[in-house]
Amino acid sequence: MSISRTYNSSVRDRDAAETRERIITAAGRLFARDGYFATPMRAIAAEAGVSVQSVHLAGPKSSLLLAAWEHAFAGDEGAHSLLERPAMAQILAEPDSTVALTRFVAFVVEANARGAGIWRAMRTAADADPQVRAAASAQDARRRADLALGAGWFASRGLVDPSNQNIAADVLGFLTAEESFLYFVEDSGWPLERYQEWLLQSIQLLILDGQPTRMS
């Protein structure tokens, strides 16, 4: 293959990736603002500044919804574990557990601020759309697996009794859930700083210091 042909292929791949990112980002904004069913493909195309055909080529609307949430919450697409993604892997590798927990909470706050509205649209759409329901169920399963790994990380640092990791995972899931973010920030009007402080203190009290994992 010639150098020119390789260069042209690289440029096309880069342009395609940039177009897909614009489409997914635009879809996420509209899903969060208007909801899933009120967002037609032509509106996504207009928001992204691309053709309707380009949006259809990027995938069906249900897959765009899942991709938009993954991109907003985790920073990239894919079914791989959140703990494998670079930003989270760096946090978990932090040797100081107190620093790691603070960074983890900050990550969750920023991620929920980006993705909670899209998650709400997904939850609402799942009641009526089988494809969205399947995508949401798959995401729930991956989340529970991530929470189990997260509780395992707490145990590996000596912060949680290894025999009670399941309860720790459940409590962590409740505290970090998009629903909790939406209740406090969107519905109750809390500033992000207050929500972040609440989340950090709640994890320390209910999972670490308070050790709900001691319950039978």
Rank of each mutant, 00 (worst) to 15 (best):
L83F: 01
E84C: 09
R85K: 01
R85A: 03
P86M: 03
P86N: 05
P86F: 02
P86D: 05
A87L: 06
M88P: 00
M88D: 01
M88F: 08
M88C: 09
A89Y: 02
A89I: 07
A89N: 04
Q90E: 15
Q90S: 12
Q90G: 12
Q90A: 14
I91Q: 08
L92G: 03
A93L: 11
A93N: 03
A93M: 08
E94T: 13
P95D: 11
P95V: 11
D96F: 04
S97L: 09
S97E: 14
T98A: 13
T98Q: 11
T98F: 13
V99C: 10
V99D: 09
A100P: 00
A100I: 03
L101E: 05
T102D: 12
R103M: 15
F104P: 00
V105R: 11
V105Y: 01
V105E: 08
A106D: 14
A106F: 00
A106Y: 13
A106C: 07
F107A: 06
F107Y: 07
V108P: 06
V108R: 14
V108E: 14
V108C: 10
V109Y: 05
E110C: 09
E110A: 15
A111F: 04
A111L: 00
N112V: 08
N112W: 01
N112K: 09
A113I: 05
A113L: 05
R114E: 03
R114T: 03
G115N: 03
G115D: 01
G117T: 00
I118T: 00
I118G: 02
I118N: 02
W119V: 01
W119N: 14
W119G: 07
W119K: 13
W119S: 08
R120F: 07
A121M: 01
A121H: 00
M122I: 04
M122G: 11
M122N: 07
R123E: 15
R123H: 15
R123P: 09
R123Y: 12
T124V: 12
T124F: 04
T124G: 04
A125Y: 02
A125Q: 02
A126H: 09
A126Q: 05
A126K: 15
A126E: 06
D127N: 15
D127V: 05
D127A: 10
D127K: 11
D127I: 07
A128P: 00
A128V: 06
A128S: 12
D129G: 08
D129S: 12
Q131Y: 13
V132L: 07
A135M: 14
